[in-house]
Design a protein around this nucleic acid. Structure first.
Lengths: 229, 229
DNA sequence: GCTCGTGGTGTTGTACACATCATTGTTCGG
DNA sequence: CCGAACAATGATGTGTACAACACCACGAGC
């Protein structure tokens, strides 16, 4: 997404996509933590538009489960209870396995380059853990992996579910319910394992590794909730 | 969240849901065939609201892939090419199997009653096939089946994918690329088989039957496209 | 006769003012 | 002193006028 987006085209749809991506990223990277109230007027001013087109973006984010608007009160970043999260995670790792079976494509040279860059970033974070960089890496790596499938509907669904759950997991990490250094280490190993599977051309295995890591990261998070209520 | 929603509350959200459901049904039942242009003004007048809230509904339908708005031209009911349809169908019958594994719940008495009514309607359609009634039955039966799972995210996804694909299949049927009488007969057998699986409590089997029928109906449709280009 | 330019018409997208709703602080009555 | 009604405030939702844009028909020029 947002490949080049020639800036000489401030068309309506492009503006929409840009605003949507920006706000979504802020929510998922916890710049807007769950429970935060978003000011329509302030956001509209920031993007240099009126409330009308901005509200369209917020409505979309609400349909994706990231926001909730209440008449007369405000629009808030949603939080999710552990029960709903469990269902979503269960679905997510089943879909990860599906991704390996349906429309898996071998990475091209550009993707390899991105993977190498991501791996390097991961090593750096392991040396010096930093919450924000870790969150960004996590998201960028997920988006890179998505380029391995050509089943568009499946890709869309996985993306939506990822954006819906990742901030909750990140919140757990940042609140030290999970140790950041440990998590960075584990994630670095995940990257390593998946890339090795990709190198020998076994996309199926890569998908299974991803599935396993999604499952385990949820389990760790659940433990975090149990030990520190 | 939305605990009781008393129906004496024509609140903003209820109006939205109602308009959304109505237009979506019209699209899926081919009252608005693919390619049709929808008039914002006419629809707004019909629902007794201004363009603003109606546009919110249309934007949602666009995000669900049922509409496409083009600046200065109009908003049109989308059509899908056979390639995209193949991917979606592949995903749909994989998800049908998933539904059997994840969060399957036994039907309660109310659902049994609905199933019996649906079965009766099916028998009637077999006797006297009628396109519109067949389409409605198909949709109602699907919605009833959805009540067998309690994994909300999965349910939402299956629903969206169903609404996205079913009108294309119905179009094939109505254009006589597929024989309506045959299709009614096959569908009646699907209902029969699934209900029998449910009666003995084998939700797993019911899901597999559904999966098989989704797969086969797509195959028949593909044949229809091949034999009559 | 053909082509290119140009205005007309109808559509979606935007800005802004106002209606509606929920919260909160205040004030009056007990 | 306490409680309830009420006005003030600020948020989202709606209505309306206007801008931006695309298509089409008409006509002037070559």
């Amino acid at each position: 997404m947002n490949v080049v987006t020639p800036e000489i085209s401030p068309s309506a749809r492009d503006r929409f996509e840009r605003m949507h991506a920006v706000i979504r990223t802020r929510i998922c990277l916890l710049d807007y933590a769950p429970g935060t109230r978003l000011s329509e007027e302030a956001l509209a001013a920031e993007f240099g538009v009126s409330r009308t087109p901005l509200r369209r973006v917020l409505a979309r984010l609400e349909s994706e489960g990231l926001l909730q608007s209440v008449h007369g009160v405000g629009t808030f970043v949603t939080d999710v209870d552990i029960a709903e999260l469990a269902q979503t995670y269960q679905l997510r790792f089943e879909l990860a396995e599906l991704t390996g079976r349906l429309g898996a494509v071998a990475p091209d040279e550009a993707l390899w380059a991105d993977f190498r860059a991501l791996s390097a970033r991961s090593k750096e974070i392991v040396r010096a853990p930093e919450p924000k960089r870790f969150a960004e890496l996590n998201m960028d790596f997920f988006m890179a992996l998505q380029r391995l499938t050509d089943n568009e509907p499946l890709k869309d669904i996985c993306e939506k579910l990822y954006f819906r759950t990742t901030r909750i997991w990140l919140k757990s990490v940042f609140e030290s319910k999970i140790d950041l250094a440990d998590e960075a280490d584990i994630f670095d190993r995940e990257i390593h394992d998946i890339l090795r599977a990709l190198e020998i051309g076994d996309l199926h295995a890569a998908a299974h590794i991803q599935r396993a890591h999604i499952s385990m990261s949820f389990a760790r998070m659940q433990n975090g909730f149990k030990t520190r209520p």
